[in-house]
Nucleic acid binder design. Structure first.
Length: 349
DNA sequence: AAAGCGGGGGG
DNA sequence: CCCCCAGCTTT
Protein backbone atom coordinates (compact mmCIF):
# COMPACT_ATOMS: atom_id res chain seq x y z
CA UNK A 1 0.00 0.00 0.00
CA UNK A 2 1.08 3.54 -0.70
CA UNK A 3 1.49 6.37 1.78
CA UNK A 4 -1.97 7.91 1.53
CA UNK A 5 -3.80 4.58 1.30
CA UNK A 6 -2.04 3.48 4.46
CA UNK A 7 -3.09 6.71 6.22
CA UNK A 8 -6.69 6.37 5.05
CA UNK A 9 -6.85 2.71 6.09
CA UNK A 10 -5.66 3.67 9.56
CA UNK A 11 -8.16 6.54 9.67
CA UNK A 12 -11.19 4.45 8.74
CA UNK A 13 -10.50 2.19 11.71
CA UNK A 14 -9.33 4.75 14.26
CA UNK A 15 -11.17 8.00 13.54
CA UNK A 16 -12.94 9.89 16.30
CA UNK A 17 -16.63 10.56 15.97
CA UNK A 18 -16.63 14.36 15.66
CA UNK A 19 -19.87 16.22 14.95
CA UNK A 20 -18.60 18.19 11.95
CA UNK A 21 -17.66 14.95 10.22
CA UNK A 22 -21.31 13.92 9.90
CA UNK A 23 -22.30 16.70 7.52
CA UNK A 24 -21.50 18.20 4.15
CA UNK A 25 -23.19 21.49 4.98
CA UNK A 26 -20.55 24.14 4.19
CA UNK A 27 -21.95 26.48 6.85
CA UNK A 28 -21.48 23.90 9.59
CA UNK A 29 -18.05 22.96 8.30
CA UNK A 30 -17.06 26.64 8.13
CA UNK A 31 -18.17 27.09 11.73
CA UNK A 32 -16.06 24.17 12.88
CA UNK A 33 -13.00 25.09 10.83
CA UNK A 34 -12.82 28.70 12.01
CA UNK A 35 -13.23 27.60 15.62
CA UNK A 36 -10.48 25.01 15.20
CA UNK A 37 -7.88 27.42 13.79
CA UNK A 38 -4.89 27.24 16.16
CA UNK A 39 -7.21 25.52 18.62
CA UNK A 40 -7.31 21.98 19.96
CA UNK A 41 -10.33 19.87 19.11
CA UNK A 42 -11.11 19.36 22.81
CA UNK A 43 -11.01 23.11 23.45
CA UNK A 44 -13.11 24.03 20.42
CA UNK A 45 -15.75 21.32 20.67
CA UNK A 46 -17.99 22.95 23.32
CA UNK A 47 -17.83 26.27 21.44
CA UNK A 48 -18.88 24.53 18.24
CA UNK A 49 -21.88 22.98 19.97
CA UNK A 50 -22.94 26.32 21.46
CA UNK A 51 -22.58 28.21 18.18
CA UNK A 52 -24.49 25.64 16.16
CA UNK A 53 -27.17 25.50 18.80
CA UNK A 54 -27.53 29.29 18.86
CA UNK A 55 -27.14 29.79 15.09
CA UNK A 56 -28.43 26.69 13.25
CA UNK A 57 -28.10 28.37 9.84
CA UNK A 58 -26.09 31.12 8.21
CA UNK A 59 -29.23 33.28 8.31
CA UNK A 60 -29.38 32.98 12.09
CA UNK A 61 -25.70 33.80 12.32
CA UNK A 62 -25.98 36.85 10.08
CA UNK A 63 -28.89 38.18 12.12
CA UNK A 64 -26.75 38.37 15.25
CA UNK A 65 -24.70 41.41 16.16
CA UNK A 66 -20.98 41.43 16.74
CA UNK A 67 -21.17 41.88 20.50
CA UNK A 68 -23.32 38.77 20.76
CA UNK A 69 -20.92 36.70 18.68
CA UNK A 70 -17.89 37.90 20.64
CA UNK A 71 -19.73 37.10 23.84
CA UNK A 72 -20.23 33.52 22.67
CA UNK A 73 -16.59 33.45 21.55
CA UNK A 74 -15.36 34.60 24.97
CA UNK A 75 -12.42 32.58 26.27
CA UNK A 76 -11.47 31.02 22.94
CA UNK A 77 -8.91 33.66 21.91
CA UNK A 78 -8.00 35.13 18.52
CA UNK A 79 -11.17 37.19 18.54
CA UNK A 80 -10.65 38.43 14.98
CA UNK A 81 -12.06 35.05 14.02
CA UNK A 82 -15.40 36.00 15.53
CA UNK A 83 -15.34 39.48 14.03
CA UNK A 84 -14.50 38.10 10.60
CA UNK A 85 -17.21 35.46 10.81
CA UNK A 86 -19.73 38.19 11.46
CA UNK A 87 -18.66 40.08 8.31
CA UNK A 88 -18.55 36.91 6.25
CA UNK A 89 -22.02 35.81 7.30
CA UNK A 90 -23.49 39.08 6.04
CA UNK A 91 -21.66 38.77 2.74
CA UNK A 92 -22.92 35.23 2.27
CA UNK A 93 -26.48 36.46 2.83
CA UNK A 94 -26.13 39.39 0.46
CA UNK A 95 -23.90 38.05 -2.29
CA UNK A 96 -24.64 34.35 -2.23
CA UNK A 97 -28.33 34.52 -1.39
CA UNK A 98 -27.76 32.73 1.91
CA UNK A 99 -26.17 29.71 0.24
CA UNK A 100 -22.75 29.24 1.77
CA UNK A 101 -20.16 28.84 -1.03
CA UNK A 102 -18.33 25.54 -1.28
CA UNK A 103 -15.83 26.17 -4.08
CA UNK A 104 -12.24 26.84 -3.15
CA UNK A 105 -11.91 30.04 -5.20
CA UNK A 106 -15.08 31.56 -3.76
CA UNK A 107 -14.22 30.55 -0.21
CA UNK A 108 -10.77 32.13 -0.41
CA UNK A 109 -12.38 35.55 -0.90
CA UNK A 110 -14.19 35.38 2.44
CA UNK A 111 -12.85 37.21 5.49
CA UNK A 112 -11.01 34.88 7.82
CA UNK A 113 -10.81 32.09 5.25
CA UNK A 114 -7.29 31.31 4.06
CA UNK A 115 -5.81 28.45 2.06
CA UNK A 116 -6.24 25.88 4.79
CA UNK A 117 -9.88 26.68 5.53
CA UNK A 118 -10.85 26.99 1.86
CA UNK A 119 -9.31 23.58 1.17
CA UNK A 120 -11.06 22.07 4.17
CA UNK A 121 -14.54 23.37 3.35
CA UNK A 122 -14.32 22.66 -0.40
CA UNK A 123 -13.00 19.13 0.05
CA UNK A 124 -15.34 18.11 2.88
CA UNK A 125 -18.38 19.77 1.42
CA UNK A 126 -17.94 19.41 -2.34
CA UNK A 127 -15.20 16.82 -2.77
CA UNK A 128 -12.83 19.31 -4.36
CA UNK A 129 -9.27 17.97 -4.58
CA UNK A 130 -7.49 20.64 -2.55
CA UNK A 131 -5.08 19.44 0.12
CA UNK A 132 -5.34 20.88 3.61
CA UNK A 133 -2.01 21.91 5.10
CA UNK A 134 -2.25 22.47 8.84
CA UNK A 135 0.17 21.81 11.68
CA UNK A 136 -0.55 18.08 11.57
CA UNK A 137 0.08 17.83 7.84
CA UNK A 138 3.32 19.83 8.02
CA UNK A 139 4.62 17.44 10.67
CA UNK A 140 3.55 14.22 8.99
CA UNK A 141 4.89 15.15 5.55
CA UNK A 142 8.10 16.58 6.94
CA UNK A 143 8.89 13.47 8.93
CA UNK A 144 7.81 10.82 6.47
CA UNK A 145 9.29 12.38 3.33
CA UNK A 146 12.18 14.18 5.01
CA UNK A 147 11.10 17.60 3.78
CA UNK A 148 13.24 20.09 5.67
CA UNK A 149 11.89 23.45 4.49
CA UNK A 150 11.01 25.86 7.30
CA UNK A 151 7.27 25.39 7.86
CA UNK A 152 6.50 28.93 9.10
CA UNK A 153 7.88 30.69 6.05
CA UNK A 154 6.00 31.45 2.83
CA UNK A 155 8.42 29.32 0.76
CA UNK A 156 8.19 26.40 3.14
CA UNK A 157 4.43 26.57 3.09
CA UNK A 158 4.49 26.47 -0.71
CA UNK A 159 6.73 23.42 -0.74
CA UNK A 160 4.52 21.53 1.70
CA UNK A 161 1.34 22.52 -0.11
CA UNK A 162 2.78 21.22 -3.34
CA UNK A 163 3.73 17.90 -1.76
CA UNK A 164 0.34 17.61 -0.02
CA UNK A 165 -1.43 18.08 -3.34
CA UNK A 166 0.71 15.35 -4.88
CA UNK A 167 -0.12 12.77 -2.23
CA UNK A 168 -3.81 13.60 -1.81
CA UNK A 169 -6.20 10.81 -2.81
CA UNK A 170 -8.20 12.41 -5.62
CA UNK A 171 -10.76 9.66 -5.43
CA UNK A 172 -11.94 10.93 -2.03
CA UNK A 173 -10.21 14.21 -1.15
CA UNK A 174 -12.36 14.86 1.90
CA UNK A 175 -11.51 11.58 3.59
CA UNK A 176 -7.90 11.93 2.48
CA UNK A 177 -7.64 15.33 4.18
CA UNK A 178 -9.39 14.19 7.35
CA UNK A 179 -7.11 11.17 7.51
CA UNK A 180 -3.92 13.21 7.22
CA UNK A 181 -4.93 15.51 10.08
CA UNK A 182 -6.22 12.75 12.33
CA UNK A 183 -3.09 10.69 11.82
CA UNK A 184 -0.91 13.69 12.62
CA UNK A 185 -2.92 14.43 15.74
CA UNK A 186 -3.08 10.90 17.09
CA UNK A 187 0.01 9.01 15.86
CA UNK A 188 2.58 11.40 14.41
CA UNK A 189 2.29 13.73 17.42
CA UNK A 190 4.62 16.68 18.08
CA UNK A 191 6.27 15.02 21.06
CA UNK A 192 6.64 11.32 21.70
CA UNK A 193 4.94 10.16 18.50
CA UNK A 194 3.74 6.55 18.45
CA UNK A 195 6.37 5.33 16.00
CA UNK A 196 6.27 1.81 17.49
CA UNK A 197 2.72 1.23 16.28
CA UNK A 198 2.90 3.51 13.23
CA UNK A 199 1.96 1.59 10.09
CA UNK A 200 4.45 3.69 8.12
CA UNK A 201 7.44 3.35 10.44
CA UNK A 202 9.47 1.22 8.02
CA UNK A 203 9.50 3.92 5.35
CA UNK A 204 9.57 7.00 7.57
CA UNK A 205 12.56 9.23 6.76
CA UNK A 206 12.70 10.86 10.18
CA UNK A 207 12.56 7.59 12.09
CA UNK A 208 15.17 5.90 9.91
CA UNK A 209 17.49 8.88 10.28
CA UNK A 210 16.76 9.59 13.93
CA UNK A 211 15.29 13.02 13.12
CA UNK A 212 11.91 12.74 14.81
CA UNK A 213 12.78 15.52 17.25
CA UNK A 214 14.30 17.69 14.51
CA UNK A 215 11.46 17.63 11.99
CA UNK A 216 9.54 19.65 11.10
CA UNK A 217 11.92 22.62 11.03
CA UNK A 218 10.38 25.79 12.40
CA UNK A 219 11.76 29.24 13.03
CA UNK A 220 11.39 30.24 16.65
CA UNK A 221 9.10 33.05 17.66
CA UNK A 222 10.52 36.06 19.44
CA UNK A 223 10.10 36.51 23.15
CA UNK A 224 6.82 37.96 24.35
CA UNK A 225 6.98 41.63 25.29
CA UNK A 226 5.91 42.76 28.75
CA UNK A 227 3.01 45.20 29.22
CA UNK A 228 1.69 46.76 32.41
CA UNK A 229 -2.04 47.32 32.73
CA UNK A 230 -3.54 49.35 35.57
CA UNK A 231 -7.26 48.72 35.69
CA UNK A 232 -9.59 51.00 37.65
CA UNK A 233 -12.60 49.26 39.10
CA UNK A 234 -15.54 51.52 39.94
CA UNK A 235 -18.69 50.08 41.43
CA UNK A 236 -21.82 52.13 41.73
CA UNK A 237 -24.76 50.44 43.34
CA UNK A 238 -25.50 47.47 41.05
CA UNK A 239 -23.38 48.50 38.12
CA UNK A 240 -19.73 48.65 37.15
CA UNK A 241 -17.71 50.94 34.89
CA UNK A 242 -16.60 49.31 31.63
CA UNK A 243 -14.80 50.38 28.48
CA UNK A 244 -14.79 48.84 25.02
CA UNK A 245 -11.37 48.23 23.46
CA UNK A 246 -11.20 49.91 20.07
CA UNK A 247 -7.57 50.03 19.07
CA UNK A 248 -5.92 47.59 16.70
CA UNK A 249 -4.50 45.71 19.61
CA UNK A 250 -5.25 42.63 21.65
CA UNK A 251 -8.90 42.00 22.56
CA UNK A 252 -10.31 44.42 19.99
CA UNK A 253 -14.02 45.12 20.66
CA UNK A 254 -14.04 43.30 23.98
CA UNK A 255 -14.91 45.02 27.26
CA UNK A 256 -12.59 45.81 30.15
CA UNK A 257 -12.24 48.33 32.97
CA UNK A 258 -10.86 51.83 32.39
CA UNK A 259 -7.22 51.16 31.59
CA UNK A 260 -4.06 53.12 32.31
CA UNK A 261 -1.10 51.46 30.71
CA UNK A 262 2.40 52.11 31.99
CA UNK A 263 5.93 51.00 31.14
CA UNK A 264 6.49 49.38 34.52
CA UNK A 265 4.55 48.19 37.53
CA UNK A 266 3.07 51.35 38.99
CA UNK A 267 2.69 52.28 42.61
CA UNK A 268 -0.93 53.22 43.31
CA UNK A 269 0.06 56.67 44.59
CA UNK A 270 1.95 57.24 41.36
CA UNK A 271 -1.03 56.05 39.34
CA UNK A 272 -3.62 58.36 40.87
CA UNK A 273 -1.30 61.32 40.36
CA UNK A 274 -1.05 60.80 36.62
CA UNK A 275 -2.63 63.66 34.65
CA UNK A 276 -4.78 61.31 32.57
CA UNK A 277 -6.06 59.68 35.75
CA UNK A 278 -6.84 63.01 37.40
CA UNK A 279 -8.66 64.32 34.37
CA UNK A 280 -10.92 61.29 34.45
CA UNK A 281 -11.44 60.69 38.16
CA UNK A 282 -10.49 63.97 39.80
CA UNK A 283 -8.19 64.58 42.73
CA UNK A 284 -10.42 63.19 45.42
CA UNK A 285 -10.34 59.45 45.15
CA UNK A 286 -10.66 56.79 47.81
CA UNK A 287 -8.67 53.61 47.28
CA UNK A 288 -10.80 50.73 48.46
CA UNK A 289 -8.48 47.85 47.57
CA UNK A 290 -5.68 46.80 45.22
CA UNK A 291 -5.41 43.37 43.62
CA UNK A 292 -2.37 41.99 41.88
CA UNK A 293 -0.35 42.52 39.87
CA UNK A 294 -1.38 39.27 38.24
CA UNK A 295 0.47 37.80 35.28
CA UNK A 296 -1.42 36.80 32.16
CA UNK A 297 0.58 35.02 29.47
CA UNK A 298 -0.27 35.39 25.79
CA UNK A 299 1.84 33.94 22.97
CA UNK A 300 3.31 37.32 22.14
CA UNK A 301 2.79 39.46 25.25
CA UNK A 302 3.09 39.07 28.99
CA UNK A 303 0.43 41.17 30.68
CA UNK A 304 1.02 42.34 34.23
CA UNK A 305 -2.32 43.62 35.45
CA UNK A 306 -3.27 45.23 38.71
CA UNK A 307 -6.81 46.11 39.69
CA UNK A 308 -7.38 49.23 41.75
CA UNK A 309 -10.83 49.43 43.26
CA UNK A 310 -11.76 53.04 43.95
CA UNK A 311 -14.58 55.21 45.03
CA UNK A 312 -14.65 58.27 42.83
CA UNK A 313 -16.24 61.32 44.35
CA UNK A 314 -16.19 63.33 41.16
CA UNK A 315 -16.47 61.38 37.96
CA UNK A 316 -15.83 64.02 35.36
CA UNK A 317 -15.41 62.73 31.85
CA UNK A 318 -16.84 59.27 31.87
CA UNK A 319 -18.86 59.80 28.71
CA UNK A 320 -16.11 61.48 26.74
CA UNK A 321 -13.81 58.63 27.63
CA UNK A 322 -16.34 56.23 26.12
CA UNK A 323 -16.90 54.50 29.45
CA UNK A 324 -20.26 53.21 30.57
CA UNK A 325 -21.80 51.86 33.73
CA UNK A 326 -23.12 48.38 33.06
CA UNK A 327 -25.52 46.53 35.33
CA UNK A 328 -23.89 43.61 37.09
CA UNK A 329 -26.58 41.22 35.89
CA UNK A 330 -25.69 42.19 32.31
CA UNK A 331 -22.10 40.98 32.67
CA UNK A 332 -22.83 37.47 31.37
CA UNK A 333 -23.87 39.07 28.08
CA UNK A 334 -20.68 41.08 27.67
CA UNK A 335 -17.51 39.76 26.05
CA UNK A 336 -14.53 40.13 28.37
CA UNK A 337 -10.91 39.03 28.05
CA UNK A 338 -10.04 36.08 30.26
CA UNK A 339 -8.13 38.23 32.73
CA UNK A 340 -11.13 40.51 33.31
CA UNK A 341 -13.53 37.61 33.53
CA UNK A 342 -11.35 35.82 36.09
CA UNK A 343 -10.95 38.93 38.21
CA UNK A 344 -14.68 39.61 38.25
CA UNK A 345 -15.49 36.05 39.16
CA UNK A 346 -13.30 36.31 42.25
CA UNK A 347 -14.12 39.90 43.08
CA UNK A 348 -17.89 39.60 42.95
CA UNK A 349 -17.98 36.44 45.05
C1' DA B 1 9.29 38.20 5.06
C1' DA B 2 7.89 39.32 9.61
C1' DA B 3 4.87 40.62 13.10
C1' DG B 4 0.47 40.60 15.51
C1' DC B 5 -3.28 38.11 17.34
C1' DG B 6 -5.45 34.15 22.91
C1' DG B 7 -5.82 30.80 25.68
C1' DG B 8 -5.12 26.10 27.22
C1' DG B 9 -2.56 21.79 27.72
C1' DG B 10 1.54 18.81 27.90
C1' DG B 11 6.35 17.67 28.73
C1' DC C 1 9.48 27.21 31.47
C1' DC C 2 8.74 26.30 26.42
C1' DC C 3 6.22 24.47 22.55
C1' DC C 4 2.13 23.44 19.98
C1' DC C 5 -2.68 23.64 18.56
C1' DA C 6 -7.83 21.75 11.94
C1' DG C 7 -4.22 29.82 10.68
C1' DC C 8 -5.29 34.50 8.94
C1' DT C 9 -4.37 39.34 8.29
C1' DT C 10 -1.64 43.32 8.20
C1' DT C 11 2.61 45.68 7.67
Amino acid sequence: MHFIEEIIAWYLINKRDLPWRNTRDPYIIWLSEIILQQTRVEQGLPYFERFLDRYPTIAHFAAANEDEILNLWQGLGYYSRGRNMHKTSKIVMEEYGGYFPNRYDDLLKLKGVGEYTAAAISSFSAGEAKAVVDGNVFRLLSRFFGLRDVINSPQGKRAFTELANEVINKHDPGTSNQAMMEFGAKVCKPRNPDCIVCPLNQQCFALRNDMITVLPVKKKAQRPRPRYFNYIVVLSRDSILLSKRRAKDIWENLYEFPLFESDKILDVIELIGRPDFVSAFGEEVTILSVHGPAKHQLSHQTIHAQFVVIEAHKLQNVDQMGWHFVALDELPNIAQPKIIFSFLRNFLH
